[in-house]
Design a protein around this nucleic acid. Structure first.
Ligand SMILES: [Zn+2]
Ligand SMILES: [Zn+2]
Ligand SMILES: [Zn+2]
Ligand SMILES: [Zn+2]
Lengths: 173, 173
DNA sequence: TCACCTTAGGTTATAATGTTGCAATTCTAC
DNA sequence: GTAGAATTGCAACATTATAACCTAAGGTGA
């Protein structure tokens, strides 16, 4: 039952413009697997609620608002008010399993939770998908800035918008 | 009367850690001057309210929340509810006279409104001051990302936190 | 097993941030 | 001056996030 709605991925795929066509079930499965491992490693408890929130966030590659999750959780029997979902999201954020995109007050699953990396996203204004920016280039920038400005960077978030590759090419037709 | 509270800059200066000591009245005056010129250029009206909001934002180099401005405006006779300040801020944002830092829901004056540039800030967790990141490096990053990812970047915001140069050196003592 | 403690989640209320819609006023252009 | 546009006042409302308090579940060691 908790699996049933994952099949909507096929209809979702039309909008997976930043990642072209892909097997999204695999995205979800990988994310879940990573989460289980990470929680074991850290001695954190991936409860039903937390796992389900993670799955829901991973239903698409579009950032999702906290309040969008509430009715979905309610449908599945979780008696959930805002604190419920925010606590679950905080837990997932803490472990790096999801990221927050503050310019749009939304959350998205992380695809490299095993390795810490700068928080950086590109969000397509056309299809709405968000994809993580390559950590290498962000780290390079940070290093440069630390050197030239004498600052010590502890946290960073980069949020770019525009047209993704797929939407760009379609726009040119 | 609208000038009286600018004198608190001297007490403010202690916390100008990212900019060392400087004559902050000059910061404000320059910002005001830029604003007047820019508005003339664009045929936009820098009304009393808008100008005053800009001045208030410029009182410090710390980002300021919209709701912090409300009581200040009220004290000066502006009968201001949230829409008033948000509209003024929207106007200033539109012209590039202020920036919004979405990770902390706050606004800050722009120091290069004459030239469009990527939205990028470093915010010191110690002193709270925010300073703009060098446009050159941000543009370089954007160019790289566009080339390697095939995306078209239309907007960007970079928000870094950590210790500024001044606070870093003090921490080492 | 049991008492004990810690963590997670339920519940209610409230805070903080941001918008919509419309009326009244002010400004601008003709 | 007058019509039309832009700006502001004002009231209500929408969205996002948190506080406070309590109950339930799970883990630990006697
Ligand atoms: Zn996918
Ligand atoms: Zn990530
Ligand atoms: Zn200054
Ligand atoms: Zn700027």
């Amino acid at each position: 039952m908790t699996q049933s709605s994952q099949d909507n991925c096929s209809s979702e795929q039309d909008s997976h413009k930043t990642h072209a066509k892909h097997n999204h079930d695999r995205c979800i499965a990988t994310a879940l697997n990573d989460a289980v491992l990470l929680c074991e490693q850290r001695g954190a408890r991936l409860t039903q609620l937390r796992q389900r929130v993670l799955e829901l966030v991973w239903q698409t590659h579009k950032p999702v608002g906290a309040y969008e999750l509430l009715p979905l959780l309610a449908k599945e029997g979780f008696n959930s008010a805002p604190p419920t979902v925010y606590r679950a999201l905080d837990f997932l954020l803490e472990l790096g399993l999801v990221h927050r995109i503050s310019s749009i007050n939304a959350f998205i699953g992380c695809n490299q939770p095993k390795h810490e990396h700068p928080n950086g996203f590109f969000i397509c204004r056309q299809c709405g998908n968000a994809s993580e920016l390559p950590a290498l280039q962000l780290r390079e920038l940070a290093k440069q800035l630390e050197a030239s400005l004498g600052i010590t960077i502890e946290g960073e978030t980069h949020e770019l918008t525009g047209l993704c590759a797929s939407c760009s090419s379609k726009a040119q037709k």
